[in-house]
Computed example of a mutant assay.
Amino acid sequence: MTTADRYVEFASREAHGVSPAYERLAHAVARDDDLLALLDDLPPARRQPQLLLGVVRWLGGPVDDPVAFRTHTLAHWPAVRAAMLTRAVQTNEAGRCAALLPVLAALPQPLALLEVGASAGLCLYPDRYAYRYGDHLLGAGEPVLDCALTGTGPPTTRPEVVWRAGLDLNPLDVTDPADVGWLDALIWPEHTHRRARLRAAAAVAAADPPELVRGDLVDDLPALAARAPAGATLVVLHTSVLYQVPPARRAAFVALARALPGHWVSAEAADVLAHPALPSPPDGALHNVLALDGTPLAWMRSHGQSAHWFG
């Protein structure tokens, strides 16, 4: 897939109907030979639309007009390039917990959560957030995470979490304003509700910071998993992470996740973790496959805003 194709796909499958600003920008980049030449000089993993757009926002550039975006990005390319080589797409969307909750609440309690690709660890607190499934409210306080569930009923309890830890090549510190600022920059421009949700979730996590370990998802996972307390159900989970992992390394992680005691909860795109005979997604938008121990359960939107159970 060419870089132009990646930006067109992002515009049409991810940003369409979700972020008009990013849809316009991604289409504009896909048609811009100058920007494409600069992007093609980066390693393939660093050409992501989300990374370019997030970095330009983070550096104070305009993202509301394609002409202004192009002018600014070309003029400031050395700084944009340097940030794209050192930063990573680490969207830490607490809203995903709402789609994960029906799975987590149904497992044997209490849980020991271990998130791979944890970023700042905001998805390690499903027991601390409030949820709204249509007119069904679960929990109290902020943030309140909304999710449209179809094909299954809403959970009636939150999980009991007695241990939480994360593994990431570059963990982010939820108590560091610079790291939280990068997480803010990764939120799409129109999503003021997600920005407020980030602040509320960061406050929850900062009050009891998670244990985050810098490490590799294969080499360092067994040692961290071994630290989970006896008597708790180990749950290794990840959301929208494995697309950044080379296929051979991805396969090694899957084999390891299957071999560990406890359970494995994943939410990845269907072309990243293949599952045979999936039903068609509910619409043309990008959906992840929510799975438990490798068995697909539902189509899930990438920010947790909806989950469509297979029945």
Results as ranks from 00 to 15, higher is better:
residue 205 A to T: 04
residue 230 A to T: 13
residue 191 H to Y: 01
residue 200 A to D: 15
residue 216 D to W: 10
residue 231 G to E: 04
residue 230 A to M: 00
residue 196 A to D: 15
residue 219 D to W: 00
residue 219 D to H: 13
residue 206 A to D: 06
residue 221 L to E: 12
residue 223 A to E: 15
residue 195 R to A: 15
residue 194 R to V: 00
residue 196 A to P: 01
residue 202 A to M: 11
residue 204 V to D: 05
residue 215 G to T: 04
residue 195 R to D: 03
residue 196 A to Q: 14
residue 222 P to W: 13
residue 230 A to G: 15
residue 195 R to M: 13
residue 220 D to K: 13
residue 226 A to Q: 04
residue 206 A to F: 05
residue 209 P to C: 08
residue 215 G to I: 07
residue 199 R to W: 02
residue 208 D to V: 00
residue 225 A to K: 05
residue 229 P to W: 03
residue 227 R to F: 04
residue 215 G to L: 10
residue 221 L to Y: 11
residue 216 D to N: 09
residue 221 L to I: 10
residue 232 A to S: 13
residue 229 P to I: 00
residue 226 A to I: 08
residue 220 D to Q: 05
residue 204 V to G: 02
residue 202 A to G: 15
residue 220 D to G: 04
residue 216 D to Y: 06
residue 190 E to T: 12
residue 191 H to N: 13
residue 222 P to G: 10
residue 214 R to N: 02
residue 194 R to H: 15
residue 223 A to I: 10
residue 231 G to L: 03
residue 233 T to A: 04
residue 199 R to C: 01
residue 220 D to P: 08
residue 214 R to L: 02
residue 195 R to W: 01
residue 222 P to Q: 03
residue 210 P to C: 09
residue 207 A to E: 02
residue 222 P to T: 10
residue 188 W to D: 02
residue 202 A to N: 07
residue 230 A to V: 10
residue 213 V to G: 01
residue 188 W to V: 04
residue 213 V to L: 11
residue 212 L to C: 09
residue 192 T to L: 14
residue 197 R to I: 06
residue 233 T to R: 12
